[in-house]
Write a protein that binds this DNA or RNA. Structure first.
Length: 165
DNA sequence: CATCAAAAACTCC
DNA sequence: GGAGTTTTTGATG
């Protein structure tokens, strides 16, 4: 989801691969899972100081979660989406590490108990996985559901937090 | 620009 | 296994 905004793309090297973090002038807008194609994230000559500091936080937070620990600080998140989607993402960020919620519970939390299907759609549109814990949302019968970056990642993240499915 | 149709990481009967 | 609810997105007039 790229909007007409100037963004910077920086790689984050972890033990699980190279993530790509996208920043706008206002904060972190998107986080991608490691991709097969290198895609040469060209680093601009003049990287704003703000972004470098955000990137440090992003990297630390990402590694914390991959290790199954709650991140101490997060960079400013700038979700690019509809009101509905932002509501969903905000509700998801309230899920404590190691816990899971069902799509139905998220739907209720935002005042649309029947909009479970739409909630699923919003989760799929989540541009910042891991930091916005969309992986902690399971189906009502504790099934894994789906995951934008691949189901393997969802399991990997849940395992790291001690959640068994 | 307004309207219609189809799809989506679901849930209930 | 099938129907129902909500939102988003792309096509159509």
């Amino acid at each position: 989801m790229i909007l007409a905004t100037v963004t910077f793309t920086l790689p984050i090297l972890t033990s699980d691969g190279k993530f790509l973090a996208h920043y706008s002038e206002q904060g972190l807008t998107e986080l991608d899972f490691p991709q097969a194609n290198p895609k040469a994230a060209k680093t601009p000559v003049a990287l704003p100081a703000d972004i470098r500091s955000w990137h440090r936080l992003t990297e630390a937070a990402l590694k914390s979660i991959l290790a199954g620990k709650e991140p101490a600080k997060l960079p400013p998140l700038v979700p690019l989406g509809t009101i509905f989607q932002k509501s969903v993402w905000t509700a998801m960020r309230a899920i404590p590490l190691g816990k899971t919620r069902s799509y139905g519970e998220i739907a209720e939390a935002i005042g649309r108990p029947k909009a479970v299907r739409a909630v699923g759609g919003a989760c799929g549109a989540n541009p910042i996985p891991v930091l916005v814990p969309c992986h902690r949302v399971l189906a009502a019968n504790k099934k894994i559901g789906g995951f934008g970056g691949g189901l393997a990642w969802k399991r990997r993240l849940l395992e790291a937090e001690g959640v068994h499915v």
